[in-house]
Design a protein around this nucleic acid. Structure first.
Lengths: 210, 210
DNA sequence: TATTGTAGGTAACAAATGTTACTCATTTCT
DNA sequence: AGAAATGAGTAACATTTGTTACCTACAATA
């Protein structure tokens, strides 16, 4: 297996060998649902390529983007699901092409006591996810929609490395748990302010925006 | 040290002995700030008595109640602060009398590899805190203030075990990151609906509420 | 007792967000 | 080509939440 990516996590050689033995490489395409609400999980994923978005849904079907996972990340939710055999509270969707290595949950406990690097990796992941959620809460609780929209666009820009973001107003509204009309209104405002340009399925960030 | 409370966490006898040796018992009174924004932490706490509320503040000083810690809980934020020497992003305040045991961070890594029960405890704690944050996000993102206020009162009722909640409108507004006038308005609405009775510094939940 | 501070009630208004309804343009499908 | 689906613009309006301002009641205390 090609774990050249995983290898820069500073895992012990023995651990890398074990990952090579039991890990499975999986591929997903844009929009594929990698994990879903209510599902039981028997593996934990380590992302090697691409980006995964993590969503939470309410009773009425509205969704909210919590955070992204990208290379070398793993999902804490997955970890705790595995350890406690609980249902997932979140949905994971591939954003573009995604490659990941799945680790069967039978290995987790023994790796945890055997490999300090693994322990560190999991702990750091928990911590990072925790902080992402805090950021998310801060954003929702303390900032108005226009600010949140700007953050959203900047995050996309950071992830894609491009000034052109291919996304529909509907999608944004979905991920921010609001309605399309509201997003269109705010985007139009940004366009009028000379920060962005709007096209069908596409938003161009101008230099004054970034 | 009296660790009769901690003993029902199913820790190994050896671990209990170590906790007895290095843990320190601390006491706090209502309103005491146990942990604060930006502080570095060198211990992690295990709550043995009382309730601690965990708050997050934004740049403008508005606060938001994230969740409560009570007996046998520990704080994941503390854990990750200790492991990565990071500043705290949250504030912890005693709600009533609080007793807790502090564990010096020098012990964490070795306990983590030596004691499966400790590992479990920390993992379960991370998971619980993670779910609390998710609940918090769900509440803010998907529910209106009146619903959130009802949840707030029900949570207080659950924690206190009493129908009489001693709290001012100001306090509630603070913890829900909104203003006093708004809370007064919504409480009055609940009173008009026959769900609660309002007094100075006191809210009485009627049977139709619970 | 007079004074001061705190808790709470309430009206009037402002701002932010959500909803409905209709339009047009572009793409996709048949 | 024609029909249907999708993406987006926009107005008008409703609701929710935030803000300001002022009032009353109660409690603490000098």
């Amino acid at each position: 297996m090609n774990n050249s990516i995983v290898s820069n996590l500073n895992f012990e050689p023995d651990l890398l060998k074990e990952i090579d033995e039991v890990g499975e490489l999986k591929n997903y395409k844009d929009g594929d649902v990698i994990m879903d609400y209510g599902k039981y999980l028997k593996i934990i994923p380590i992302v090697t390529k691409g980006t995964i978005k993590i969503l939470k849904m309410d009773e009425n079907g509205r969704e909210l983007l919590l955070y992204y996972l990208s290379s070398n990340d793993t999902c804490s939710m997955a970890y705790s699901c595995c350890m406690e055999a609980k249902k997932s509270e979140i949905r994971a969707v591939a954003e573009g092409d995604v490659e990941l290595i799945t680790i069967p949950n039978t290995k987790l406990d023994s790796w945890h006591s055997k490999y300090p690097s693994w322990r560190n990796y999991i702990m750091r992941s928990f911590n990072e996810r925790f902080l992402e959620l805090l950021k998310s809460i801060e954003s929702i609780a303390f900032h108005k929609l226009d600010d949140r929209l700007v953050s959203y666009l900047k995050e996309k820009h950071r992830l894609l490395g491009s000034n052109v973001i291919k996304v529909s107003h509907y999608q944004i509204a979905d991920e921010m748990a609001t309605s399309r009309v509201v997003i269109s209104r705010l985007l139009k405002q940004l366009e009028n302010d000379g920060k962005i340009l709007l096209y069908r399925n596409e938003i161009k960030l101008l230099t004054s925006f970034i």
